[in-house]
């Protein structure tokens, strides 16, 4: 009797163990997780990149999906690769998916034959998302038909507009419009009737005894600082300009190896434009150099811009800017 009781107890304990281990396996057949790779403000024309992590260790992965509340611009979708980092620190892509398609706000990738993968999803921010929030729902399907989803926190899209690599040259393409984010020649200003849209004039001159060099002037700046700069007839805007030295916007950098970043990079965001008050700023700045930048406020106060100097040479300069309508 005693021996029978002992056997029954052992069987009971063994079945209990089997049951508990089975239930754990059921819960772990499909995993997903997500990392947002891009940092800084979400600006129209730029991308928001996510790395979507999936694993189905028993059944294998069938497909990955994402739905954006506002359809992305051209170029939005999954990459077909899962990346690993080699010994040199480079990301090496391995093709794990076929049929990566995007229709409207929905993107998908169909897996070839894999148990686990991390796919990169690129969302190119469209014009219609400016100033709004975009939500993303990622989901993954296993070959056994099970689904998991991952809801991303809403992504606020900035009101900032950005343009990089504007080449300006003194005495030629030197008339900058903040609203248009473009540089014009004198002829273009006159032909296109842009005199009231010119906020800054780029001028380069070596003046003996003082630091002048690469300067930004308003059309209405005092004549003693114009140093031969030609003001288009009728242009008289007096913008407020203020030099910054230790603010290096990462999104405005063209070549990180050539542009100084002492003190580290930062991002000029909507809140910076909203809170920046120039106080008693002048209508000009003198002696600009590579890596420096200026805050500019248009004469009517409706447009603010952050202009960063990417490179300089005698009489010419490459700038990138963020512009913000107040």
């Amino acid at each position: 009797m005693k021996r029978r009781y002992f056997i029954l107890m052992a069987l009971f304990m063994a079945s209990g163990l089997i049951l508990s281990s089975c239930s754990e396996e059921d819960e772990t057949t499909l995993f997903n997780d997500l990392i947002k790779k891009t940092v800084g403000p979400n600006i129209v024309g730029n991308e928001i990149q996510f790395a979507y992590i999936m694993a189905a260790p028993y059944s294998g992965l069938d497909a990955a999906y994402v739905e954006a509340s506002i359809p992305g611009a051209n170029g939005t979708g999954f990459e077909p690769y899962s990346y690993y980092t080699n010994s040199s620190g480079q990301d090496i892509g391995v093709t794990v998916a076929i049929d990566c398609t995007t229709t409207g706000g929905k993107s998908q990738a169909i897996f070839i034959d894999t148990l686990a993968a991390t796919l990169r999803y690129h969302y190119i921010i469209p014009e219609e998302a400016k100033g709004k929030s975009v939500s993303f729902t990622f989901s993954c399907k296993g070959k056994d038909g099970k689904f998991v989803t991952y809801q991303v926190e809403d992504q606020k899209v900035s009101k900032i507009q950005m343009r990089k690599g504007i080449v300006i040259s003194s005495g030629n393409r030197c008339y900058l419009s903040l609203k248009n984010m473009a540089a014009y020649t004198l002829q273009e200003v006159q032909e296109q009737g842009l005199t009231d849209k010119i906020d800054l004039i780029y001028n380069y001159k070596v003046v003996t005894g003082v630091s002048y060099g690469h300067s930004f002037l308003s059309p209405g700046s005092p004549s003693e600082f114009m140093e031969g700069a030609v003001v288009p007839a009728g242009a008289n805007n007096i913008s407020k300009v203020e030099k910054q030295v230790y603010t290096f916007d990462r999104q405005l950098v063209i070549d990180p190896s050539k542009e100084p970043s002492s003190g580290g990079y930062s991002f000029v965001d909507d809140i910076d434009f909203d809170t920046y008050k120039p106080g008693a700023a002048l209508s000009y700045v003198l002696n600009m150099a590579r890596g420096e930048s200026v805050w500019v406020i248009s004469a009517d106060g409706k447009q603010k811009a952050f202009v960063q100097v990417n490179s300089v040479a005698a009489g010419t300069m490459t700038v990138s800017l963020k512009s913000y309508e107040m």
């Binding site: 630091s211 002048y212 600082f225 008693a280 700023a281 000009y284 700045v285 003198l286 002696n287």
Partner: peptide, 8 residues
């Protein structure tokens, strides 16, 4: 320096 903003 030449061009300094004395007001700020």
């Amino acid at each position: 320096k030449y061009g300094t903003n004395l007001a700020k």
